[in-house]
Design a protein around this nucleic acid. Structure first.
Lengths: 191, 191, 191, 191
DNA sequence: TATGAATGAGTGTTCATTCAT
DNA sequence: GATGAATGAACACTCATTCAT
């Protein structure tokens, strides 16, 4: 029974994931999920205590990984000029492993979490990254803005790569190229 | 009386704009707008014939400008190596004037138009840009993906600059730096 | 001013009449009427204290005429066999003059009064007529039903003629034929 | 449970039928129906997916029967002088069985379907009948009008009989008498 | 475990009516 | 006399959630 229950639980999670990814949290109704799984709407409540909980089940561990990554990133020096190698390893390897492990959770958080507790996470991720990048730019009024843009670009580029269904090898390659792209771009703005 | 009506009309537009920008079209209810303006929900219908019309009032002219810009961009050559100057002028000057004139309309279209007739406009803008960029990259499997990422970055960077309230001068400077950033980044990926 | 006021009043009545005739009472909104007359919706309330009053203004005198006719009909003997001549004169001449005088009022009452105090008038007219006709039929269970049908047919035939825009002469002719039709039909059911 | 659901479903249909018959489709609200059945308005949507669907559940099969009857009537000759026997059988027997099977559905379609897809069915039924009758009348200006009246009378007489709760035997008798009434009446107008 | 039944709060929208000027 | 502004009640419909079995 436990097996059956678990299996159904996973099917619910799986179908919910698809729908949330396609339509977003708010525009996906429990009825749609129930229909996909071919169970009754009310039965969903035996597995998840609310629509939000169901969403968090799909995203909590990714969110946790994200928070840890954020903390690690905060502590590391981040200097594309001197520590570029380390930075690149950090960004490719650490991010890569999170991405591979939490692909869909990350996508949900980053793109489809409007209406949930994670809707601000993307923004705060960007803010953190921007805070890292800003000091590297010339100290002027708009360095924060440009840092913000770079952070966002980095993030949304990563998400874009994530969306593209490819083998880990290719993900790594693309991620490397993305980082290269951005570091070179950044270099152009730095004297 | 006309003055009063106009003033209220503007207040409605203004509050609706805020809410749409914060929460998106779908998740903003007429009740919320009415409450902010402190009028009855039904009174909104004296000023706008539907929720959609209210949104379009805030976005139509920006959408029109966007469409014209897309057409002009399609016709121009886009080669960062040789025609970089022309491209940069086009991207900074033309985009700039649209951005300055239609700031919030563009933001709404680009970020909060889900559920309206403009919800696909951002994606088609990105596709068009990507189609311009892709041929410049080496012909390999992932060039389309990378082009897509660059296009998106370019666009969201622009939007980001837009969000930042600054004087036209600074917008121009930032836009230029953004373009420089991306062209240099792109160069790094090209042999 | 009084003249102007009267003229506008008549224009309102006229446009309301058209709309009520076309669409019925319930499906005609005050906005539609105001638009046709080219005045504001609220101005209607200076001429008529409610939508219902406006309708009654268009129908009261027809309703009054109808009531009087009903009373006169009640008192007259109604025997197609012997008093056919008298009956026919009554039905053609009296009904005719009411019809000619109150054409649109009668049409409104008979066909478009749902939602007003006259919505039952058509039914009670039919009942009265049926009460006249029933005794002439054989005394059996269904004579009331047949009388009801005849009454209704007589009435709706009359309304149909009324709808047809023709000169009084033709109305009289058609009315006569209708009566002939029904008396002959009735004869067939009587010994 | 299924029993309960079915029972409630029937109660909803029954109360809706009563209200639709009394007030018509447009003037009957879901709230009225819910109140009569003593359930919440939203619960109605567990049984019928819209107000229209609820109405069609009460009328679809009658409408289907009506359409088939119309087709059969179109093909038959309709000549009261010579083919009266056949015509009478058709009108009494075929109409009779439809009437007995679809009493309330027919009433709804014929009298209370404004605002639904069946609102034109009565008029087209009358037109069809009138087109049958008109050629039999003398060729003059008003023959179409008279034919229209006869068709309408025939139809509303039938509906009237339908409204009267009686045994099939009596319905047949009444229908026969109605037909006799109209054919004799018509004869009087034909030279 | 599973479900059908049920609901309350909320959605955008319409409309007759009232009010202030 | 005329109008624009405003509103409350009602409309059909949706949805997350609860309850009884």
């Amino acid at each position: 029974m436990q097996v059956l229950k678990d299996e159904l639980r996973h099917r619910i999670l799986s179908e919910a994931q698809h729908l949330f990814l396609q339509r977003g949290y708010a525009r996906t109704s429990l009825q749609m999920i129930a229909d996909k799984v071919n169970i009754s709407k009310s039965n969903l409540y035996h597995y998840f205590k609310s629509k939000e909980e169901l969403f968090y089940e799909l995203t909590d561990s990714a969110a946790e990984g994200l928070r840890k990554l954020i903390i690690r990133l905060r502590d590391k020096r981040f200097d594309p000029a001197t520590g570029q190698r380390e930075y690149q390893v950090l960004l490719t390897e650490e991010v890569l492993s999170l991405m591979l492990a939490e692909k869909y959770g990350l996508l949900l958080i980053m793109e489809q979490s409007q209406g949930t507790r994670y809707e601000a996470l993307r923004a705060s991720m960007i803010d953190m990254l921007a805070a890292k990048i800003a000091p590297l730019l010339e100290d002027e009024d708009n360095s924060l803005l440009l840092a913000q843009i770079m952070a966002q670009n980095l993030l949304s580029g990563t998400v874009q790569i994530l969306k593209n269904r490819v083998r880990p090898r290719e993900v790594r390659t693309n991620l490397n190229r993305l980082v290269e792209y951005h570091t070179k771009g950044m270099d152009a703005l730095l004297r």
